[in-house]
Design a protein around this nucleic acid. Structure first.
Lengths: 201, 201
DNA sequence: GTCTATACTCGGATAGAC
DNA sequence: GTCTATCCGAGTATAGAC
C-alpha cells in the first residue's frame, strides 16, 4: 500500500491536468486547488504564482514531446528501421500523454520568447543527422528524391495530428466507444507502411 | 476609393483577429476594442456579450475549415485527381486563413456541446463518398489495401499540421525570412506525390 | 504546513449623458 | 451611435491565526 502523495506532488499533478486541458489563459487556480483537494492559498505557498507553476509544467511538457523524438532521430539505425521505430515509439509516447502536443503547440504559438530559447537549446539536435541520412539515401537512389524537411514534417504530422484533432476525427469518422483507440493503434503500422511506400521503400 | 468600413464590420474583423490569435479564454474585449479603434461599450452595443461575439466568429471559422473539404471530397473526380485537388485547394485555403485550423481545433476540444451539433450537421457530408471511392479502388486493385479512415486522416494531417505547428517547424528546421512560406508552397506538390505513392499510384 | 479572511486587479457588462 | 463613468464578479495574491 503506497503512502498517499505529498501536497506538493498533488498540486503539480492537478496543475498539469488543468493547464493541459484548458491552456494557460483558461486555467483557474481554483480549479487546480479543487482537483488537488486543497485550498488556493497552498498553491501560492508552494509555487509563488500562476506563472511559476505554469513554467514548470510547460518545460516538462516540452521535454515530453522533444526527448523521444530526439532519441530516435539520432539513433544508430538504417533509415527504414528508424522511421518505423520513430512512428511506433512516438505514437506510444503521445498515447501516454495525449494532451501534451496540443498544449505545447498552443502555448508556443503565443509566447515567442519561450520559442527562442527552445530553438537555441534543442533544435540543433533534432534535424541535422536525420536530414543527412535522407539525403544520402536519395543520392544512393534508395528512395525517391525528396527534401528531408518534408519527410520529417510528414512523419511528425501523421503521428501527432490525430491527437490534436481527436474531437473532429471522432465526429467526422463517426467513432464511438473504443473506435478512436483502435484507430490510433492501427496507425502505428499504417503510418509506417505509408511513409515507407511514399519514399519508395 | 472605397468608403471606410462600418463600425460593425470593424468590430467583427478585430474580434476575428484577437479570438483567432488568443483563443476565447485569452481574448480581451479591450484588445478587440483597441484593434477596432473604438471603446469597449460599442462591443456590447453591437454584440451583447463576449460569448455572442465569439459564437459568430467560431461558426464562420468552422465553415472555413469544412466547406472547402466537403466540396472537393464530394466532387465528381477520379480518386488521384481528387487527392491532388484536395491538397492544393486545402493548403491554399489555409494559407489565406492560417490561424483558423488551430483555433477551431482548440475551441472544439473544450466545448463538447459545440461538437455535437457540428457532428450532426456536417460530418455526414464529409466522409461517406470518399470512403466508398477508396474502397472501390482497393477492390479493383488500383491502390494498395488501406482503410479509408486512415487515408483521409493522413491527407488532412499532411495539409493542416504545418500550420498548427508553424513556430516549432520554423525552429526545428531553422527557417528564417520566407523559408516557411516557400516550404508551404512546395508542400502542395510534395504532399500530393507522397499521398499517391503511398497508395501505390 | 494548512486554514480563513481579505486585499487588489482585471475584465466583462451596464447606466446614462450627449 | 458614441462616449464617460462605474458597477460587479472573478481571479490572483497576501496577511495572519492556528
Amino acid at each position: 500500500m503506497e503512502k498517499e502523495k505529498s501536497t506538493e506532488e498533488r498540486i503539480l499533478e492537478a496543475a498539469r491536468e488543468v493547464f493541459l486541458e484548458q491552456g494557460y489563459a483558461g486555467a483557474r487556480m481554483q480549479a487546480i486547488a479543487d482537483r488537488a483537494g486543497i485550498n488556493k492559498s497552498m498553491l501560492h505557498y508552494y509555487y509563488r504564482s500562476k506563472d511559476k507553476l505554469f513554467e514548470g509544467i510547460f518545460r516538462t511538457s516540452l521535454m515530453q514531446v522533444l526527448a523521444p523524438a530526439i532519441a530516435v532521430l539520432n539513433a544508430d539505425l538504417p533509415l527504414p528501421v528508424k522511421i518505423e521505430r520513430f512512428v511506433h515509439s512516438y505514437v506510444d509516447q503521445i498515447v501516454a500523454h495525449p494532451h501534451v502536443p496540443a498544449f505545447v503547440l498552443h502555448e508556443l504559438g503565443r509566447h515567442p520568447d519561450r520559442l527562442k530559447q527552445f530553438a537555441g537549446e534543442h533544435a540543433p539536435r533534432m534535424f541535422p543527422r536525420f536530414a543527412a541520412e535522407v539525403r544520402k539515401a536519395v543520392d544512393a537512389g534508395e528512395i525517391h528524391p525528396v527534401q528531408p524537411e518534408h519527410v520529417l514534417a510528414n512523419m511528425v504530422a501523421l503521428c501527432v495530428f490525430p491527437f490534436i484533432a481527436r474531437p473532429m476525427i471522432e465526429a467526422v469518422l463517426g467513432f464511438e466507444g473504443r473506435a478512436y483507440h483502435d484507430f490510433i493503434q492501427e496507425r502505428k503500422q499504417t503510418v509506417t507502411d505509408f511513409m515507407l511506400k511514399g519514399l519508395g521503400l
